[in-house]
């Protein structure tokens, strides 16, 4: 509790240099990566994808198909990596787990009344348990944005701590801040600090249901928070931008941002993930372009 109070006090003094963040990001986006470095970066990005389907219209077959896609991204291209995880709603975890058996791909489940997070703690814990019982390797929770805006930081903190406790040591918890609803970079920083000190293994930008979802400036603020936390405690926290990252160039910009903010240690799917559904195909098209020399068409890549 002592730490909580310390963070909460510090939190009110947070002030992010918005202009500095914008400037740093515009320097990153002005760069471009070519040839071998590009191919290497694209393969790395593929291997960091949490291939996601979070639709009301999800069906058993849709999830099966997505799992297949995760394991066989594009068989025409030799030696491609797989994605890092398949991300689904809790009721599909069992199915995904069974489909992915032996592939090394994790199953991530959203939980805690995703995407709004508007429910009681009991319901959220039950939701999380449902995912865990079905065998989820990772849980993606959402914070209570309403409580956050009301200044009830302790509530938000305790909730995250409780869900982490439910997950236990072996299941990694990704905490979604839903930065599109937080209003300012200062708030993004505050929420990041709360999430990390409360025990999250990953902090994640968005649910993908709110626009804007992940952006480079927001991601940079969160990466800086991770860096400070690492210096403070020695604990490494992962980062997952999610939503709206649909092209290869942007994915490479994210990787540059990670490398130059946190370093190589974070450049594995253990510590960095992309939450995305259409990014994989764009990367595959780019890789095929590099391999064959011809610009590609969506017609020749499986949808999911």
């Amino acid at each position: 509790m002592k730490t909580t109070n310390k963070i909460i006090t510090n939190i009110n003094q947070v002030s992010v240099d918005q202009v500095g963040i914008g400037d740093r990001v515009s320097r990153i986006t002005a760069r471009s990566v070519k040839n071998e470095a590009k191919i290497q970066g694209l393969k790395m990005a593929l291997n960091m994808i949490d291939l996601t389907t979070l639709e009301g219209a999800d069906t058993v077959n849709k999830v099966k198909q997505l799992c297949y896609k995760g394991m066989h991204l594009h068989d025409a291209y030799p030696d491609l990596p797989t994605v890092a995880a398949i991300c689904v709603y809790p009721n599909f975890v069992g199915l995904a787990k069974e489909q992915l058996k032996g592939s090394g791909i994790n199953v991530a489940s959203v939980a805690t009344a995703f995407p709004s997070g508007n429910s009681s703690l009991e319901v959220k814990i039950t939701d999380t348990k449902m995912a865990l019982d079905a065998g989820a390797d990772e849980v993606d929770m959402v914070i209570s944005r309403g409580k956050f805006h009301q200044g009830e930081y302790n509530y938000v903190f305790d909730e995250i701590a409780k869900i982490k406790e439910t997950c236990g040591k072996n299941v990694r918890l990704k905490t979604i801040l839903e930065t599109g609803e937080l209003g300012s970079l200062d708030n993004v920083r505050k929420a990041s600090d709360i999430a990390m000190y409360a025990g999250s293994d990953f902090i994640k930008t968005s649910t993908g249901k709110i626009s804007p979802a992940a952006t480079l400036p927001v991601t940079l603020v969160m990466l800086e928070a991770i860096k400070d936390y690492y210096y403070e405690t020695g604990i490494q926290i992962g980062m997952k931008p999610a939503g709206g990252i649909s092209n290869s160039k942007l994915a490479l910009h994210y990787l540059m941002l990670v490398k130059e903010t946190l370093g190589d240690k974070w450049l594995t799917n253990q510590w960095f993930r992309f939450g995305a559904s259409s990014l994989a195909n764009d990367i595959l098209m780019q890789l095929e372009k590099q391999r064959t020399g011809n610009y590609q068409s969506k017609d020749y890549f499986s949808k999911d």
Binding site: G293, N294, Y295, Q296, S297, D299, Y300
Partner: peptide, 8 residues
């Protein structure tokens, strides 16, 4: 060459 090879 590009007009004629583009897959799309």
């Amino acid at each position: 060459p590009h007009f004629s090879t583009h897959m799309d």
